[in-house]
Nucleic acid binder design. Structure first.
Lengths: 140, 140
DNA sequence: GTCAAGTTTTGGACTCAGTCCAATTTATTG
DNA sequence: CAATAAATTGGACTGAGTCCAAAACTTGAC
């Protein structure tokens, strides 16, 4: 039995061709949009509906199999690296997205200077900048 | 002459009723959406087109008069507090948004653990959680 | 104060990402 | 293998924002 099948079963998720293909697509696209993942899936199993893509990605995010990030000015991105507290670095010019570990150790990000009585459950950090490739073209 | 008029002039922005009203609306709505600001403006000057709202807010952001934040699952919010490096704390349940100062002093947020050769110009931090009011209703 | 030139504002069409819904197909359990 | 519950499909729809051309303004020069 394939790893992916086992993964779904252990999470109590019925195994379908679409879900397996989405899992596979995520492995090839570390930070793909729903549309990009749909394309990847179609290249493997022929077709998948928009709705199934969103259903699948949504339930995977709920079960903790995937993480969804929603950067300003971009559709949501999905990534398979979960369970750690890493953040993202995004190029303003080309959208290239890379993972970065938390700057200040393990999980200190969760402490805001003044929490206004909120119970904080996540600190989302996005570093914006310019990637090496775009630096070259813009300074020319 | 009004403060707002002076502010626009010093930034070389032609003064129009719409722009003055947007400036005024921002003062009343510390974290408003484009739509909320449009409503506020309409209550003051009668009407404003969608396009003008976006033009105005967009150019104000460019000139540094306003800051735009784009939290996941919400339309963009605009705020008048600019020039400092503060972050935001957002309630997942009701969307309430409050300002928080940078947790780690002045501007250390700009240092990622490993920058992959990027030139970073901004660290955007959003703390997600539940506000006091929503805590009460959900734990009941 | 008036005029010309260049911006803004308008409103309507349009795009993009994502959601909603009913009908059909599929996976799982007994 | 049948019954049931769940997933998939496709098409309509929504919300946020952009694009465009025409009309209305601000501004700076006279």
């Amino acid at each position: 039995m394939f790893e992916s099948t086992k993964l779904l079963r252990t999470h109590g998720i019925p195994v379908t061709a679409q879900r397996l293909a989405v899992l596979r697509a995520i492995r090839e696209q570390p930070h793909g949009t729903a549309e990009a993942i749909a394309e990847e899936v179609r290249s493997k199993i022929g077709s998948i509906s928009k709705q199934s893509i969103y259903n699948t990605l949504g339930s995977f995010v709920e079960k903790g199999l995937l993480r969804r990030i929603q950067p300003a000015g971009s559709p949501a991105l999905y990534e398979g690296r979960v369970g750690d507290n890493h953040h993202h670095l995004i190029c303003r010019a080309c959208g290239k997205t890379v993972d970065v570990d938390c700057a200040v150790g393990k999980k200190p990000c969760l402490t805001a200077a003044n929490d206004a009585g909120f119970v904080i459950d996540e600190a989302e950090v996005i570093y914006w900048g310019t990637c090496p490739a775009c630096l070259v073209t813009t300074t020319k």
